[in-house]
């Protein structure tokens, strides 16, 4: 009744995975460019006149937009359940980051302690990852 065999087109999961691999490659490349730019700048005593240094910093600055574009493409390729999972994870991460930012403002002004900005990034990404993992595990362990 149902013909079996290899599909003519790659499955949705394969298409999403392909984009995710591109995101990982681009992220690694961005990190590499960042490291090279930092090394060149430190060797040239932070001179902004160095062409290569300025060029690499420019490339490094643009790369997050490329990564964001790829991530959006991956989201568009996902099926409705995966999209919903991503939306919930992003919402949770946003709320956690905003709460942390609010707490950070209070701590910074009340105790005169400046929290590093990367801690907000780390918390947001951790909250996002936790929400995605939790959602995936919950989907697997549904009620029979």
């Amino acid at each position: 009744m149902y013909p079996r065999g290899k599909p003519a087109l790659p499955s949705r999961e394969q298409r999403v995975l392909k984009i995710i691999w591109a995101v990982i490659a681009l992220t690694l490349f961005a990190a590499l460019v960042g490291v090279i730019a930092a090394v060149i700048r430190s060797r040239s005593q932070g001179s902004d006149q160095d062409f290569l240094s300025g060029f690499l910093v420019g490339v490094f600055g643009v790369m997050p937009f490329g990564i964001a574009l790829f991530l959006y493409a991956a989201y568009r390729q996902m099926d409705e359940f995966s999209q919903q999972l991503q939306e919930k994870a992003c919402t949770f991460a946003f709320v956690m980051t905003m709460l942390a930012a609010s707490a950070g403002f209070v701590i910074a002004s009340g105790f005169k302690v400046a929290l590093p900005l990367w801690s907000l990034y780390l918390l947001g990404m951790a909250a996002y990852a936790a929400a995605v993992i939790r959602g995936s595990l919950a989907a697997r362990g549904g009620r029979e």
Binding site: S11, R12, E13, D79, E80, S82, S136, A139, R140, G142
Partner: peptide
């Protein structure tokens, strides 16, 4: 045209 996770 969905993931196996969605079917599950």
């Amino acid at each position: 045209d969905v993931s196996r996770q969605t079917v599950n």
